[in-house]
Write a protein that binds this DNA or RNA. Structure first.
Length: 801
DNA sequence: CCGCCATGTCATTAA
DNA sequence: AATTAATGACATGGC
């Protein structure tokens, strides 16, 4: 099938090109515009090339695996896009590679999920890297580092879905998504059923396409097989840097559906569209409607990322508001570091299974079923995923702060809340409360912290939270989440690559560095936006990166050291062998083969005046011819220039002595023999050169040692960084959980409160305040600022939930 | 023939 | 002041 599609697509492209050349106008744009407005933007957009390539790439990845039923439409869609792009490229003389296009197909899914909300053109770039990886599923663990990025994108998708989710479901989603590509027919059937269910729920396909994909993801989650498959796919994705593309997810959900395709393209959707989608999606209400109520939280999370879900609309605006993208680079770097850690710690196999690499950022790989983040994820896989998403979710901050300290929260939250509120109002999903900002808002305010502690009975939390907040962990995470949702921008991808490259270069100077740098460069250049470049980037970058992180250690330990050792041994031989003969240099005697110092042996002979050495090279050679003195031949052959010169000058002692004897002994030796000025000069030169030679050898050895140590240091630092990031993620996750608990407890308490007349307090008018002494008071929202007003609304929403 | 690499050598500097 | 180690730069030879 795949081949047929490929050929068909190719043929279409060629045909289109021919038509364009002939002068027949192929108005692909209008076609696309009519059916898929977002596509047009994507295509037209600077990143269009990337996205297309990515999608195609995705397709390619799919080829290896069962094709999702929904994918057919996507294929068409992408094909059209591809054709359009190619036609357009005719003007530019730019011809994207077909392979790249294939990969793009996969991306669509990703982009659909994440892109829909943020719709960043850059998403494709990341995918490009991942595509390559996909192509090379066998990539070694080292490769994974690079591959990790693409996978991460995958995970991101999952993470997106899961983020909102309270926890457990998030994991499922991740697993499912991971396996999407690899889905078997059964899995596909299951997915279809789930999808149909979604439709049955009342969501129109279009709506569904936009917002429901997350749901689909959720639905898919249930099937363990899918998860496995997805995991496999994620592995491949990892190779490419598919940060943006939640492509995996998209691939699952949107593949078959043309609309979905549009969704992928929808990244460019306007807010109005998003709102419309939200309205349509709302009927579904909270994701909870879908199969597993438990899943609902996750869905909500996904919604946050994607505009489609109830919260999705507000979320969409959020995305644009997304916090400083500048931090994204760092986040990505962190992610990469985590990826490296995973690669380092976890075996390749585990990595493959894990989609974590890039995804680690959002839910981080944790969500990925594989054991990359075994520590935290396994125990609370969902939570991890959730945490990531939550970190990014702005809505959460609003809700939470409002609950506790509307006043306090308002200041920091207000800006975001405006956008977020709608989402929160629509669905009081707790997920929204978990946005990264939420965390800060909730915990930062001293009052809130103290109160929360008292109420929640988690006094310890405040400090860690504050510290975490101070560290700007939330910001980073949120940024990461945003990045994940949005998909990698070219710049981000390039940055990541750069980091990787740089890292690789540092760590792998001996072996890998050369490769990785090239990859990095290409990747950077790829930012230029040529599909071809993107492909190279993904491949090389991924490889380089993986090699850097994973291989680096291996190499340093094995390969690098091995490469190094030869020299080292040589050096040792060179420098020390000679001395050994003299006994002045104790240790290094072992090696006798040194070419340079073989002469000393001869020189030892030479020391004896009788020795032919004095005669000179020629004589030596003649003697060599005679069997009795084979060593001399060797000596001549291996003798250094100085040795030859010494022989020529008939110097009565060996060069080794000349070189290695202490100054005093050396002077005594010179004094013993009556030497001419020429001989003395030669001897001094020999000694100087000999010592310098040894010094040079030692110097080079030291250089190598230093490089190796530095490499090791870099690796260690990477590990530490990844470990710290992991810990950070875990902390954030725990914070989210605490928030959720706090919110639920707050709501529970607040809803049970009754005034003197037995009437419940309207959340819009009252709020619980936590005092320093641990008491909880019901305070009227007298100070209701705009923020406070918002808060009541949110609270109401929460109550509804 | 060219490029890369390892090694040797020179010049310089600091100890 | 002499010696030596260290090191950058260059040369050489092998692959």
């Amino acid at each position: 099938m795949l081949y047929l599609k490929k050929y068909f697509t190719e043929g279409l492209i060629q045909f289109t090109i021919l038509l364009s050349l002939i002068g027949v106008r192929v108005d692909v744009d209008t076609y696309l515009n009519n059916q898929l407005p977002p596509l047009r933007e994507i295509i037209l957009g600077p990143s269009s090339a990337y996205t297309q390539t990515q999608f195609h790439n995705l397709r390619n990845t799919l080829d290896g695996y069962g094709i999702h039923p929904k994918s057919v439409d996507l294929d068409r869609f992408f094909t059209t896009r591809r054709l359009l792009n190619q036609v357009r490229q005719l003007d530019r003389l730019f011809v994207p590679s077909t392979e790249l296009n294939t990969w793009l197909v996969h991306r669509d899914s990703d982009t659909v999920v994440s892109a829909s909300s943020q719709s960043s053109p850059t998403i494709t770039l990341d995918n490009g890297a991942g595509l390559e990886d996909v192509n090379n599923p066998d990539a070694t663990p080292a490769m994974r580092g690079g591959s990790g990025a693409p996978e991460s994108t995958y995970s991101l998708n999952t993470a997106d879905s899961s983020l909102g989710a309270v926890a457990p479901e998030g994991n499922q989603e991740h697993g499912n998504r991971d396996g999407n590509d690899d889905l078997t027919k059964e899995d596909i059937d299951l997915i279809d059923i789930l999808w149909r269910q979604d439709i049955d729920l009342g969501a129109g396909r279009e709506v569904f396409n936009y917002s429901n994909r997350q749901k689909e993801n959720e639905e898919e989650k249930p099937s363990p097989q899918e998860n496995k498959d997805r995991n496999e796919e994620q592995e491949s994705w990892r190779n490419g840097v598919n940060l943006q593309g939640a492509p995996p997810v998209d691939g699952e959900t949107g593949e078959s559906i043309p609309e979905q395709v549009s969704l992928g393209t929808q990244t460019s959707l306007s807010l109005q569209e998003c709102l419309r989608l939200l309205e349509a999606t709302f009927p579904f209400g909270e994701e909870t409607e879908f199969p597993a109520p438990v899943v609902s939280p996750e869905i909500a999370v996904s919604n946050e990322e994607v505009p489609s879900t109830s919260q999705g609309l507000p979320l969409v605006p959020q995305l644009p508001s997304a916090e400083p993208q500048l931090d994204l680079e760092q986040q990505w770097q962190d992610i990469m570091a985590i990826m490296e850690l995973q690669a380092m710690e976890v075996n390749n196999t585990s990595l493959h299974t894990n989609s974590s690499s890039v995804s680690a950022i959002s839910g981080t790989t944790e969500s990925s079923t594989a054991g990359n983040f075994e520590l935290s994820t396994r125990s609370t896989p969902i939570n991890q995923d959730v945490s990531l998403h939550q970190a990014s979710l702005p809505s959460c901050s609003q809700d939470f702060p409002q609950i506790f300290n509307p006043q306090l929260d308002s200041a920091s939250i207000a800006p975001r809340t405006a956008t977020l509120r709608p989402s929160s109002s629509n669905s009081t999903n707790i997920n929204s409360t978990f946005g990264a900002t939420n965390l800060t808002g909730i915990f930062l305010p001293p009052h809130v912290n103290s109160s929360s502690n008292n109420v929640t009975s988690t006094p310890v939390l405040p400090d860690p939270f504050s510290t975490l907040l101070e560290e700007s962990m939330l910001d980073e995470i949120s940024l990461l989440d945003l990045a994940m949702e949005e998909g990698f921008s070219q710049a981000q991808a390039s940055q990541l690559e750069d980091e990787l490259d740089s890292d690789s270069g540092l760590s792998l100077d001996s072996s890998h560095s050369p490769v990785s740098p090239s990859s990095s460069e290409t990747s950077c250049s790829s930012a230029a936006s040529s599909s071809s470049t993107s492909a190279t980037f993904s491949e090389e970058g991924a490889v380089g990166y993986s090699t850097d992180s994973e291989v680096a250690t291996v190499e340093t330990e094995e390969g690098a050291v091995g490469g190094y050792q030869p020299e080292y041994s040589k050096l040792c031989r060179m420098s020390y062998q000679d001395p050994s003969q003299f006994h002045t240099l104790p240790q290094l005697d072992s090696i006798s083969h040194n070419h340079t110092y073989n002469l000393p042996l001869s020189s030892a002979f030479s020391e004896h005046p009788e020795l032919p050495i004095s005669v000179g090279k020629k004589t030596v050679r003649d003697k060599q011819n005679s069997k009795p003195q084979p060593p001399q031949d060797l000596l001549d052959k291996h003798s250094s220039r100085d040795e030859r010169r010494a022989r020529a000058m008939k110097i009565p002692f060996s060069n080794e002595k000349i070189i290695n004897l202490p100054v005093e002994e050396f002077n005594e030796l010179l004094a013993k023999h009556h030497l001419s000025e020429a001989q003395l000069a030669l001897i001094r030169d020999i000694r100087r050169r000999g010592k310098n030679k040894m010094a040079a050898q030692n110097c080079r050895k030291r250089k190598l040692d230093t490089i190796i140590k530095l490499e090791q240091g870099v690796q260690d630092l990477r590990r530490d960084k990844a470990r710290l990031l992991k810990e950070k993620m875990e902390f954030i996750r725990s914070i989210r959980q605490m928030k959720q608990k706090m919110q639920s407890l707050y709501q529970e308490v607040f809803t049970q409160l009754r005034d003197e007349e037995g009437r419940p307090y309207p959340p819009s008018e009252y709020s619980l305040q936590y005092s320093a002494d641990g008491s909880v008071l019901i305070m009227p929202r007298g100070v209701t600022t705009a923020e406070q007003n918002r808060k009541p609304e949110k609270k109401q929403k929460d109550k509804k939930k």
